[in-house]
Structures are given as C-alpha cells and as structure tokens.
Amino acid sequence: MSAMAQYDSKLALRCENLHRYLGEGEGRVHVLRGVSFEARRGEVTAIVGPSGCGKSTLLYLLGLLDQPNDGSIWISDQLMSNSSDSDRTAARCEHIGFVFQFHFLMQEFSALDNVMMPMRKLGRLSEEQMAERARLLLADVGLGNKTHRLATQLSGGEQQRVAVARALANQPAIILADEPTGNLDVTNSGLVFDLLTKLAKENGQAVVLVTHNPDIATRCDVTKPMRDGLFV
C-alpha cells in the first residue's frame, strides 16, 4: 500500500481516453482517438511520431492550452479537463512550464525580464527574490553574463536557453516541450536537451517532450511512439 502511495505521489500528469477533433465541416479531423498517458516526476518522456499524428495536439491538451472533446486530464491529481478557463490558467501558472520550438520570448524585454515574467504572475516572491532566482536560472543555462540583453540581442540557441530558464521559473511540476531543439543546430540541440533534462531531474520535474529527433528520443527515460492519434 505504501509502495503504491509512493508510486502515485510521483505522478505529475495523467490523461485518459482523450479525443480531439480539429477543423470544421468536411475538413474536420479526428486527431486524437482515445489517448491515455502518464508522466512522472524526475522522468523525461519523449513523444515521437510522424507529422500530423497528434503529438503537439496532445501536448497542448496536457498543457491546458486547449480543451479535449472527450476524456480526462489530471494535473497533480486534480481533474482539469472540464475546469473553467481561469482554473486552467491558474494551473498553467503554478504547475506547468512550456518550451516551444520557436522560443517565443518577449522581444521587447531582457533575458532577465523574460524569466521573471511567470514569477511576476505567480506573485509568490518579492521583486528582489524574483530577480535573484532569474539570475540563478540564467546562470544555470550558461547566460549569467547576458541577463540584461534583449531577446533580439541573443542567438537562437541562447534564446532557447532563456526559454528553458523561463519554463523552470515557477518550479512547475511539469515541463512540456514542443520540439525544443527543432530549430537549433546539433551542438545547441544537445546543449538545450541536456540542460532541460538535468535541471528537471535535479528538481524532480516531469518532462514531456515532442520530438522528431531520434537521438534526443533515445536519450529520454521513456519513449512513446504515436501514429494516427494513438500511442502504438
């Protein structure tokens, strides 16, 4: 019983029988056809598969950026799939960090400001504490000397590393990464993946990443191949 409880407490994210349709009328496509999935703290899970198989759609559903047509999603044991927009937004702020293929940094802000942005919304730390944590995270991703540079003054690899630091800012239980290395060269890909997995494992976070890169996929703890809206 105690082993079971310990096992359950490691579960950061769970979904059951997820269905999602995209498009309207004749163009309506059944993208997810009853997907069930679990992600545990300290584990890196890769979702792989051909383009259009529903990997990113699943990731956005798990990240509460989208709502399923059917099925359930639990974040830290809380059923979120049918919750209100404000509850899902609050859950994203507290429990989920995102890394996207195109870093999506706020161009008008410095690297430090970008990393502080989620912390400011959560509002748990003082301005000084937030700045201190943001500096630490940027130092962890190797950008300790570029904290005040605007996003536009950083290279692609550096911007993606800022995005990783930003995803970790609120110490979320779950990191969701959509092709985090898809836009980077081999060296930067390896660097960003290593950072993501190292920091996540150190902090006991569940990492779920969607990737086309077989090298990245094989280095993950769990690999889940997907085809036609289902895990195979």
Binding site: T89, R92, E94, F98, F104, M117, P118, K121, R166
Partner: peptide, 13 residues
C-alpha cells in the same frame, strides 16, 4: 504570439 505565450505562462484573459 506574445499574447499566447503570456497566456501559457498563466496570464488571464
């Protein structure tokens, strides 16, 4: 894009 990223970080409507 910025609106989307803010929303993904937990910024409300």
């Amino acid at each position: 894009k910025e609106i989307a990223i803010l929303r993904s970080m937990g910024y409300t409507r």
